[in-house]
């Protein structure tokens, strides 16, 4: 079973060196224990572009698809047998990156 762990940020700041260091420790652990699938940090919502090609002509819009105070700053995709394991990992991930985390199952 795979889960998406979304990192929710409202600070507008990049991770500090300390946060980066503890994220690396957490990532190593995910890999060592076989939970690691993929992870990445994202550029700020200001760098986002929305494209809509449903109508035949691709319409390009500057900025994120929705303006919110809280935004997605990064994510992990993990492999876990059930939600309890995923929540335990998310709790550690939240501590490591010092941000809130949303856990959501893949279909």
């Amino acid at each position: 079973m795979q889960y998406l762990m979304s990192v929710i940020d409202d600070t507008g700041n990049l991770a500090t060196p300390e946060e980066d260091a503890s994220i690396n420790v957490f990532n190593d652990r995910l890999q060592a224990e076989g939970h690691w699938v993929f992870a990445g940090g994202l550029g700020s919502p200001d760098a986002a572009t929305v494209i809509d090609n449903r109508g035949g002509e691709a319409i390009v819009t500057d900025g994120p698809f929705v303006e919110t105070k809280e935004y997605l700053a990064g994510f992990w995709i993990i492999e876990a047998p059930d939600l309890d394991v995923a929540l335990t990992l998310a709790a550690e991930g939240s501590k490591a990156c010092n941000r809130k985390i949303e856990v959501r199952p893949f279909l």
Binding site: D82, L83, D84, P105
Partner: peptide
């Protein structure tokens, strides 16, 4: 069902 909340008694720690 979707998030696979497990059907078990939690571990001693939890």
């Amino acid at each position: 069902k979707a998030a696979r909340i497990p059907y078990r008694v939690p571990s001693a720690d939890d």
